[in-house]
């Protein structure tokens, strides 16, 4: 007896988790990084990305049977994401120092047409990160380490928090320049 049966899960439920779901999950796994990066454009924090992505995934799954051409999954999910981002901003982002909705919507609108470009950006990040000197690469990754805080990192590296912020801005700028130059060669 499998665990689903032991727990009393009706067979119709296990049957419902079917080929369609497998297909959806494969597409989701493939396109999730690009959509997540898109979502990051429109929300204030990395934590918000997780919340919006949850909603995007649920909506996409609910509407998956309406998607006729699966090759357009990434763009289709990006459209869902744009709507969910704006919905999220309306309900949860009012009390923060966020950018104007019109500006974000413009950024999202333009970004919706950049799915392939964003994919290329993501692919280039690792290579550009590797080009940084090891100590800078370590510093940058430590700043993004889960649970990390600039205050703690500054104390540990004996830096002033403001100067650490500036350093991180510079390092991200260098990665951005590197990615742009990589794109220019393609």
């Amino acid at each position: 007896m499998d665990n689903a049966t032991k727990l009393g899960i009706p067979k119709k439920m296990t049957d419902a988790i079917s080929d369609q779901h497998e297909q959806f999950m494969r597409l989701l796994a493939k396109h999730e990084p690009v959509v997540r990066a898109y979502v990051r454009t429109g929300v204030y924090s990395a934590q918000d990305v997780a919340e919006v992505m949850q909603d995007v995934s649920v909506v996409a799954w609910r509407k998956f049977d309406q998607l006729e051409d699966h090759s357009g999954f990434g763009k289709w999910m990006t459209m869902i994401a744009r709507y969910e981002i704006m919905k999220f901003r309306q309900t949860k982002a009012r009390d923060r120092l966020v950018l104007d909705d019109e500006i974000i919507d413009k950024i999202l609108q333009e970004g919706g047409e950049e799915t392939s470009l964003r994919e290329a950006w993501i692919e280039a990040i690792e290579g550009c990160l590797a080009k940084l000197p090891p100590r800078h690469r370590t510093l940058l990754l430590e700043a993004y380490e889960p649970g990390s805080s600039i205050k703690n990192l500054a104390a540990r590296t004996k830096k002033n928090p403001n100067s650490l912020y500036q350093t991180l801005h510079r390092l991200r700028g260098r990665i951005a320049n590197c990615i742009e130059s990589e794109m220019a060669y393609e």
């Binding site: 990066a37 950024i107 950049e114 964003r118 993004y144 380490e145």
Partner: peptide, 19 residues
Amino acid sequence: RQRFRLLATIEDGLVERAL
């Protein structure tokens, strides 16, 4: 705006890379 999108992508990429 495009630089903003690129830096947002890097932000997210670094979060994932740090994992």
